[in-house]
Design a protein around this nucleic acid. Structure first.
Lengths: 236, 236, 236, 236
DNA sequence: CATTAAGCGAGACGGTACGTCCCGTCTTGTC
DNA sequence: GACAAGACGGGACGTACCGTCTCGCTTAATG
């Protein structure tokens, strides 16, 4: 499925076919209710159906919006029985959540902290830019937007999104920020709270602009903001 | 919160009765589809029904959440026919919007720029605190949260909320910020973009924390953040 | 309003205007809730509104059928307030009933039993033909059909139509039949039951064909049927 | 009436329970939208729901009349979802129509033209009596009355009733009348038009009396009328 | 000649039922 | 036992009319 750089050809366009295709996704761990630990007899979970559902949900979200997204619509579009959806997911939110996890896993990946090379502020800068892009991109950004929106309206969604995704993302990112700031030429150790606060200060405007439908921050401003934060930290 | 004088006991509790009561609201301009310009003859809009609907919507939002809020439920609770609701509002979103406007008008009021007394940084500081409180308070904060959430899912809601409310609020507040910063002992004129950016920087974390279900900012942090922003401005 | 022959120009066409017009109808007693015994002060009943309602009901019955006929529709078409209708009629059935009475009064009139000329079998024959025509004509026949139909569904309508109209019509016609058969050259007195039975035998097929949507009886058959009945009577 | 043996206690009374029960009806072909030709897989039509709806409609028609009969009422009484009704019937008229067909099939059955025994005038006489009884009986007669009434008000009902039921009934009965009159001791062949006319003459008074709410014909009169018609035919 | 009580156009109101959409569960038969 | 198909009980939708009820205006007869 080709790792990093490429423009993620499979999901960008609307042609719908050949996206999240079996061959490709099979490599990544099937987030959510998965191929499972198959103990009993009978047929295994149908992987094609799973992918058809995930893609149909993405498509319909983009085409009709969250309110126009229905289980029946997904089933029809995916050529799948309703029961097959209910067997593996609790609600349309859970389907979108799976898509979010799949997309975020790719788009919000940090560079492997491979041999020799230490994490650096450049990594953080890159991550910020990718994060901003993620929010604006379809369908990934639309999915996150929808889930964030629905989390304001429904406690189950809020639990799933906040506890299951955002909290872990923040924890992981906080750790990475600490690593980035601990470079030799920086001022040494950073405690976790400080790193989390810095991360929040960098991300808050991104969410703010996305959710209030303001113009997205342009890359230059992101850089300025990061520099300012680093300077403030250096100053004490 | 409640800087101002007026005893606003009517909406704080859940008792539902004697809130948004005719006598009180009659004073404030009846936002949204209203008693109106009554050109023809014929019966006037029933003010009691209007208030019953607004209050029922608030109550049910708090009790059952946005998804559990239905037009039929509101009608039943308010003792009103469904058609009476549809006559004056397009959807439950419009009802909540009216409530939001009504509440914001009271809670997010700036001190009158009365004679002699110039607007000051203290006003801005106070406003920030009241804004943070507004986001946390029920039902007002819940209403805003629900509308912000639903705006992510539905274009009409987004239009209503962003264009009809948030944009104007931001414009008004930007102007106030300029006035506050233009105090004699401050550095003189502030241009609108600068003021807007400062405002955004102050509000973004508040929205961020509210919508991502993080702990709300405590007042002391708000002060620190404001001071830092003013210092940065003073520095250059 | 011109007695018999004329093609009743006022109601035949659909142009709707100038039918049942004030000048013409004013002569006939305003069936149903009427100009009344006016005791108090204030304005009298508006005759123009009454006629507009009656005509609008006829028109809409023909255009949209009984089920599509609504008080609101009549009010709108007649340019009249709903309340004005409810003030004078209990239901759309009552409006149609007034139309029926008005129409029947004209179309089902027997020749005046004027001086010298005795009623004759020819009168009965003529009446039969006019009755058959009445059932087929619009809007009169449609009104009777609708009321007869609705009388099967609703006891109030049945009471109004049967007790208020059909019974009286039958009684009057029975009397006329007796008179027709009592001609010198006929077999003398006819008792009322016998006359009623003869009338029923003549009318039953007309109703039967109309209500079961069979082809209407042609005039020649009516004549044959009448002759046969008279012969049977003569035979004993 | 009830020529046949079978105990048909299930629909006569109002007790509502144990009428049109599965075991009994299963024998008769389920008129109307039925268990059908089941081509695909998937769940079959729920027979219990179908019967519950049919019985509920009958009951409510008798209890509340046609105007008081609503789809919601039927659904509630039958313990069925509205959608289940709309899935199989277009309107309450169609439900009543199914009941009519079911009832007529039983009550208006001619004796099997079994071996040896030729159809006779006695069969026709018996049929006439059963027909008259059918019109007066509840719920069957009420259903026919309601449908005949509504057919005057609504073209769809008229089409269904006249084309779907009455026309076929008349054709079948005409054929039977021909057979009855073709007995050895009768005057030989009867042409179809003549038989239809005779049938109409016998039935018209029955409908006439039923629909105009006159006293129903008593059996003796039916016999007299039949005899008179036969004599007239014999006479030429 | 003003008073005043109705009639009137307009239309808001509390209601009932409509016919539709989708929910989540279930049943049936196939693979 | 997973699956496609789809019927089922349920709940809410938004609409159409019902019949009742103000409104403010107009229009006579009466005091």
């Amino acid at each position: 499925m080709s790792a990093e750089p490429g423009p993620r050809p499979r999901r960008s366009g609307r042609p719908a076919e050949a996206r999240k295709d079996p061959s490709a996704i099979a490599a990544t761990r099937p987030a959510g209710p998965t191929a499972a630990e198959q103990t009993s007899s009978g047929p295994r979970r149908n992987e094609a159906a799973r992918l058809a559902v995930l893609n149909a949900a993405d498509d319909l979200l983009v085409e009709r919006g969250f309110e126009g997204l229905t289980i029946e619509g997904i089933a029809a579009r995916a050529g799948v029985a309703k029961q097959t959806i209910y067997r593996w997911w609790k609600s349309k939110v859970d389907i979108l959540y799976d898509n979010l996890v799949l997309d975020a896993e790719e788009a919000l990946r940090w560079p492997e902290p491979a041999e020799g090379a230490d994490p650096s502020v450049a990594d953080l800068r890159d991550y910020l830019h990718r994060f901003a892009a993620f929010l604006g991109e379809a369908p990934a950004g639309r999915v996150l937007q929808a889930l964030l929106g629905h989390a304001q309206l429904d406690a189950r969604t809020a639990g799933l999104l906040h506890d299951g995704f955002l909290r872990e993302l923040r924890a992981r990112d906080t750790e990475r920020v600490r690593a980035c700031l601990a470079e030799p030429d920086q001022r040494g150790e950073v405690d976790a709270d400080e790193a989390a606060a810095l991360l929040d200060d960098l991300l808050a405007p991104l969410y703010y602009r996305a959710l209030l439908a303001l113009a997205p921050a342009d890359p230059a401003e992101l850089d300025r903001r990061l520099d300012r934060a680093l300077r403030a930290r250096a100053a004490g």
